[in-house]
């Protein structure tokens, strides 16, 4: 780890101002990923701006019945929040499916969104990686890539986004609120992370100096239930091979509302719009769910060793939608 300066700003405004002035700075939340990357030599910020004590640690209702989640709310606290558990269960489940208890106690909402891929080449400075060192190449395409992307990858990068939480946020139509030197803006969670294209070093649409200040959930759709399910190599503390977050409303046996997002398949949480188009208004049956999943996954371009993810994602989606439908039936 290289020596670095440390700043604990007194306000969001100060944090943003300093960050804009110092391109070598990084915001520090819980540090559960950034500090690891510093030890590995993947990140070597000249300045850490510790935002973890800024007054962004609250979860408050919004006027329209949604929820505003501060950027420094700890993952454990968010997962346990009664409103989250009751109205946005997929978010609570996604958080609890991630990392370990110790990490969740430390990791923040903003930091979770900004965590980097766990692609083994990205983390190994003795090997090329376009995300870490633009232009150096992507060995994952031919090398070890069982865990990597099947959707939306590019010749330059086949990394996946590792966050569980972000998948639930994508399905829940959350908005990420940013503060930068030019003021505030809001970005839909589905557009916060990018596809790699030819500049995979950029994970997100964040501009220089911008920081995540909070995440806003819209009101939960009337009668909607949500669910997150993740497949992984062991029962806990493993990244998703594939995951799915779904929000579903069924009326009179038909899908009234559905939103669906996949994790572990792409460089960003993969909002499944094509699947949703199939679902909307269609009979809430396994046949529909399978057709919807297939419509989305038709775009998949698996690599040599990760083709299983397509079937896995399909099964997860069908299973989750069927379970949500069952629950809706039972609760009637």
């Amino acid at each position: 780890m290289r020596p670095f300066a440390y700043l604990r700003p007194g306000s969001v405004a100060e944090a943003v101002r300093v960050s804009a002035e110092r391109p070598e700075a990084r915001f520090l939340g819980g540090g559960t990923n950034l500090v690891d990357l510093m030890k590995l030599g993947v990140e070597s910020p000249g300045l850490l701006i510790d935002v973890s004590r800024l007054p962004l640690d609250r979860v408050v209702p919004t006027d329209d019945g949604g929820l505003r989640i501060g950027a420094t709310v700890r993952n454990s606290d968010l997962a346990a929040h009664p409103v989250v558990r009751e109205r946005y269960p997929a978010l609570s489940q996604a958080l609890l499916a991630g990392a370990s208890g110790q990490l969740r106690n430390t990791a923040t909402t903003g930091g979770n969104l900004l965590q980097r891929t766990r692609c083994l080449y990205f983390q190994d400075t003795s090997k090329p990686c376009n995300k870490r060192q633009p232009g150096s190449g992507c060995p994952a395409r031919e090398g070890v890539h069982r865990d990597l992307a099947v959707l939306g990858h590019s010749p330059d990068c086949v990394a996946t986004n590792p966050s569980d939480m972000a998948v639930a946020l994508a399905a829940l139509d959350a908005t990420v609120h940013l503060r930068g030197p030019e003021g505030e803006r809001a970005v839909p969670a589905t557009e916060f992370h990018r596809l790699p294209g030819d500049n995979p070093d950029q994970d997100t649409v964040l501009r220089p100096g911008e920081m995540v200040v909070d995440v806003v959930l819209p009101p939960a759709p009337e009668g909607a239930a949500s669910l997150y399910r993740k497949a992984r190599d062991r029962a806990s503390y493993a990244f998703a091979l594939a995951s799915v977050a779904a929000v579903l409303t069924v009326r009179d046996g038909r899908v009234a509302h559905a939103s669906l997002a996949f994790g572990g398949l792409a460089h960003r949480p993969w909002r499944a719009r094509a699947a949703e188009d199939v679902l909307r208004g269609a009979p809430a049956t396994e046949e529909t769910f399978a057709r919807a999943a297939d419509a989305e996954l038709a775009a998949a371009e698996p690599l040599r060793d990760n083709g299983f993810k397509v079937a896995l994602a399909r099964n997860l989606a069908v299973g989750v939608l069927a379970e949500l439908t069952d629950r809706a039936d039972r609760s009637r």
Binding site: R118, R234, S236, Y237
Partner: peptide, 9 residues
């Protein structure tokens, strides 16, 4: 994180 020894769960 990548070499998966069994966890308590």
């Amino acid at each position: 994180a990548s070499y998966h020894i069994p966890v308590c769960a």
